[in-house]
Structure formats: C-alpha cells, structure tokens
Simulated scan of single mutants.
Amino acid sequence: MSIATCPECGDRFEMKSAVIEAEVIRLAHPDKHAGSASATEATQWLPQQQQARQ
C-alpha cells in the first residue's frame, strides 16, 4: 500500500496495489478525455509517483 497526493487539490489517498494504479492511469488517459491538459498531467504524474516510491 502506498500514499499518493492529488496534484490539483493536494488530497492524499492510499493506493493498495499496482493494479489499482494501472487502472487509474487507464481511466485518466487523455484519449478518454479529448486530450485534456488535466488528463495528460495526471497520466504523466502517476508513473512519476510510482518511480519516486521505488
């Protein structure tokens, strides 16, 4: 289990597994949100958080 922080609001939340993290990336992907800047930022931010925890 790991802790993540939302880049927009600063809320902290627990990520229970890499599977959940992968699902969040899939759900936030810009292709699903018409290339929005927020979706792009989230998709780039999540893997950075994974790397920072390793």
Rank of each mutant, 00 (worst) to 15 (best):
2 S>F: 12
2 S>D: 08
2 S>P: 01
4 A>D: 08
5 T>M: 14
5 T>I: 15
5 T>E: 13
5 T>A: 11
6 C>L: 01
7 P>S: 10
8 E>R: 12
8 E>G: 02
8 E>M: 06
9 C>A: 04
9 C>N: 08
9 C>L: 08
10 G>F: 14
10 G>I: 03
10 G>Q: 06
11 D>I: 00
11 D>T: 03
11 D>W: 01
11 D>N: 06
12 R>W: 07
12 R>K: 15
13 F>G: 12
13 F>K: 15
13 F>T: 05
13 F>S: 14
14 E>N: 03
14 E>V: 09
15 M>I: 13
15 M>E: 08
16 K>N: 09
17 S>R: 05
17 S>I: 11
17 S>W: 03
17 S>P: 00
18 A>P: 02
18 A>V: 09
18 A>R: 10
19 V>Q: 14
20 I>V: 11
20 I>Q: 13
20 I>M: 12
20 I>F: 04
21 E>R: 07
21 E>W: 07
22 A>Q: 13
22 A>S: 14
22 A>N: 14
23 E>F: 04
23 E>W: 09
23 E>C: 09
24 V>L: 12
24 V>A: 12
24 V>Y: 11
24 V>R: 05
24 V>N: 05
24 V>W: 13
25 I>W: 00
27 L>A: 11
27 L>C: 11
27 L>F: 01
28 A>Y: 00
28 A>I: 03
28 A>D: 04
28 A>N: 05
29 H>L: 04
29 H>W: 06
29 H>N: 13
29 H>E: 12
29 H>T: 02
29 H>S: 12
30 P>T: 03
30 P>K: 11
31 D>L: 02
31 D>F: 00
31 D>V: 03
32 K>I: 02
33 H>W: 15
33 H>I: 07
33 H>M: 02
34 A>E: 14
34 A>K: 11
34 A>N: 15
35 G>L: 12
35 G>N: 10
35 G>Y: 13
36 S>W: 10
36 S>G: 10
36 S>K: 04
36 S>P: 04
36 S>D: 10
37 A>D: 11
38 S>K: 13
38 S>L: 11
38 S>I: 14
38 S>Q: 15
39 A>M: 13
39 A>I: 07
39 A>H: 13
39 A>T: 09
39 A>F: 10
40 T>F: 01
40 T>R: 06
41 E>Q: 06
41 E>V: 06
41 E>F: 10
41 E>I: 04
42 A>F: 08
42 A>G: 08
42 A>R: 05
42 A>M: 14
42 A>N: 05
43 T>F: 00
43 T>N: 05
43 T>A: 10
44 Q>D: 12
44 Q>A: 10
44 Q>C: 03
45 W>D: 08
45 W>T: 06
45 W>I: 04
45 W>G: 03
45 W>F: 15
46 L>D: 00
47 P>G: 06
47 P>E: 09
48 Q>R: 09
49 Q>H: 01
50 Q>D: 07
50 Q>V: 15
50 Q>K: 15
51 Q>H: 05
51 Q>E: 08
51 Q>V: 03
51 Q>I: 00
52 A>S: 05
52 A>M: 09
52 A>Y: 02
53 R>S: 08
53 R>K: 14
53 R>T: 02
54 Q>C: 05
54 Q>D: 14
54 Q>A: 12
54 Q>H: 07
